[in-house]
């Protein structure tokens, strides 16, 4: 599904992502772990097209998407959530989600001026899709709330829903369980599994090891921009290089 070859991103002298090659399979949960500043978010930014790589190649479903614009990549079916959730706080939850399906519509300014049938149909379609993804993430009972008033975990779910509204095949989740409690983390893991059951491939960055170990099919470990290991949770758990990196960086290991 996603094939990365020798991917490198340099910021000045710093190689945030350094010569990383990996392959992610469809319909699996792939995790990326690593200490703070390891280059995980940068890796996502490259895959999603938010920034061009310095070197290397990204292949998605057999298509070379290296350096392609972010919005085009989104239309090809790669969606993402961000490390910090940002939503339209003053609007209702449902209102936030309607724009998620915009990329599957065609209406332009002219349709807006004459209020064309195409626009009305597409608006209906977007609204229906918003309701659908809201149901999917289990929040249909709070669709009418002002977004500022819902809990952190609910906001994470809304962010998932927004990504799902784009009809993605691959979803990149950047620390979805950041800042929420263990029970909520458990629920969120359930939601991630449900996404995969519905045919979405997931790639996630997470610091919470319990969650990763029970959830992931495949794990890639980044450290200082380099891939130091990849494998199943068991392989990673017992990999001396990984243990070294985590002990060396004195955080995250406990999490």
């Amino acid at each position: 599904m996603l094939k990365i070859d020798n991917l490198t991103k340099r910021f000045g002298g710093l190689a945030a992502v350094n010569n990383v090659s990996i392959e992610f399979e469809a319909n699996k949960i792939n995790a990326i772990i690593g200490p703070n500043g390891a280059g995980k978010s940068t890796f996502f930014n490259l895959v999603a097209g938010a920034m061009p790589p310095t070197e290397g190649r990204i292949e998605y479903q057999g298509m070379d998407i290296t350096g392609m614009a972010c919005d085009r990549i989104a239309r090809l079916g790669i969606a993402r959530t961000f490390q910090t959730t940002n939503l339209f706080e003053e609007s209702t939850v449902l209102d936030n989600l309607i724009v998620g399906h915009r990329l599957r519509t065609q209406s332009r300014l002219w349709d807006v001026i004459i209020n064309s049938k195409r626009l009305r149909d597409e608006e209906k379609k977007c609204r229906a899709r918003a309701q659908e993804v809201l149901d999917f993430v289990g929040l249909s009972h709070i669709g009418h709330r002002i977004t500022a008033d819902i809990s952190q975990e609910e906001k994470k779910r809304v962010a998932f829903a927004l990504a799902l509204a784009t009809d993605p095949e691959l979803v990149l989740l950047d620390e979805p369980a950041g800042g929420i409690n263990p029970e909520e983390t458990e629920n969120l893991a359930g939601l991630i599994r449900k996404m995969v059951e519905h045919g979405v491939t997931v790639c996630l960055i997470e610091h919470k090891m319990d969650m990763i170990m029970s959830l992931a099919d495949k794990i890639m470990v980044l450290d200082h921009g380099e891939k130091i290991a990849e494998g199943t949770p068991d392989e990673i758990r017992n990999n001396p290089v990984v243990i070294e990196a985590y002990l060396g960086s004195d955080d995250d290991a406990a999490a």
Binding site: A50, N86, I98, V99, G100, R102, S107, R108, V112, L119
Partner: peptide
């Protein structure tokens, strides 16, 4: 309209809007 929604998505953040295509 959907157009206004696109504009508002950009207001939230460029990155988010772009990631929504």
């Amino acid at each position: 309209s959907l157009l206004g929604r696109s504009f508002r998505a950009i207001r939230i953040s460029d990155d988010l809007a772009e990631s929504l295509g």
